[in-house]
């Protein structure tokens, strides 16, 4: 913790950044913290309860010099932002934190969050400084990372449809999933436009289906699995199930994982004529 506070103080003192975005605790709850001066930096913490992906706050600090406290999963979002020319690398200072899992906010039994189960990014793949982990380094659960997806795929399509229909029926179109997602940075989301109207605005089966499909598709090759959308959803729609399906397909079809590097073309924009030909046999006549 001291390491983290010292780093934040140093950055603010030397005026390398205007703000450090990290975590703090208020009345037993962990909340995001904006720290503007070195004397305030003492409040910064990092522990299991620091679930949020702070990269999301870059939406409000696009052209400013900021430092961010980021876990391995969160830092991947920075790579996607850089890939999509949303920020300049020199504007941000990444204080990477080594992380061996955060807690599951939604269940009371203090286990690890679902997203940590198969984590491969204990140390961020992009950073300017790393805060070492103290305590035991418990390795993540091994095994098939997409087991739940594979099982769901095996269900007959009408059962899959019934499942999602029930889930989407709950959707109240509050767009919390969008607001919390660091990848949803559009100036004007297409759901808010009626020319062309891609998404019916009413929270009907149709409107909700359209919204959730578009949301998931726009994250293809971009979702870094921070799990924030699912956490933020007030009606508990398993949004990560859709995201994970696309992560699985991107990996299997195109051998691509989001947020690994900043200077590669996203798989959805890219193609390899020889490799892609394999797709044709099954999918294209």
């Amino acid at each position: 913790m001291k390491e983290l506070i010292d780093k934040a103080k140093e950055l603010l003192k030397e005026k390398k950044v205007e703000t450090v975005i990290g975590y703090r605790e208020i009345r037993g709850c962990v909340v995001p913290a904006y720290v503007d001066s070195p004397c305030d930096a003492d409040c910064l913490i990092f522990d299991k309860r620091c679930v949020y992906n702070l990269a999301n706050y870059l939406k409000w600090f696009k052209n400013k010099n900021v430092a961010l406290v980021l876990k391995g999963c969160d830092a991947k979002s920075i790579n996607v932002w850089l890939q999509e020319f949303q920020i300049k690398r020199e504007n941000i200072f990444i204080i990477g934190v080594e992380c061996y899992g955060v807690m599951n906010e939604k269940s009371a039994d203090a286990g690890l969050s679902d997203k940590c189960g198969h984590c491969e990014a204990h140390v961020p793949n992009i950073y300017d400084a790393v805060i070492k982990h103290q305590g035991d380094k418990k390795e993540s659960v091994q095994g098939e990372p997409f087991k739940d997806i594979q099982e769901f795929e095996k269900l007959p399509h009408d059962e899959r449809w019934d499942f999602w229909k029930k889930q989407f029926e709950k959707c109240i179109k509050c767009y919390a999933c969008r607001e919390i997602c660091p990848m949803c940075y559009c100036k004007e989301c297409i759901v808010e436009r009626n020319i062309p109207q891609w998404i019916m605005s009413s929270p009907s089966v149709k409107g909700n289906f359209e919204w959730n499909m578009v949301r998931a598709f726009h994250l293809a090759g971009r979702c870094v699995e921070c799990g924030e959308c699912e956490r933020a959803c007030p009606v508990n729609i398993p949004l990560m199930k859709l995201n994970k399906k696309l992560i699985k397909e991107m990996k299997e079809l195109f051998d691509y994982s989001a947020g690994q590097k900043e200077d590669v073309k996203s798989a959805i924009d890219d193609f390899y004529p020889e490799k892609d030909i394999k797709i044709d046999d099954k999918m294209i006549r």
Binding site: E84, F85, Q86, Y185, K187, E188, R193, I268, D269
Partner: peptide, 29 residues
């Protein structure tokens, strides 16, 4: 350009390099 994010997915797929950058008054690209 009012709603363009400047993510340049368009440039990545354009086979003719027909997409260029433009800087608006508010400095967004």
């Amino acid at each position: 350009q009012k709603i363009c994010n400047g993510c340049f997915h368009c440039r990545a797929v354009c086979p003719y390099n027909a997409i260029d950058e433009e800087i608006l008054k508010d400095k967004s690209v």
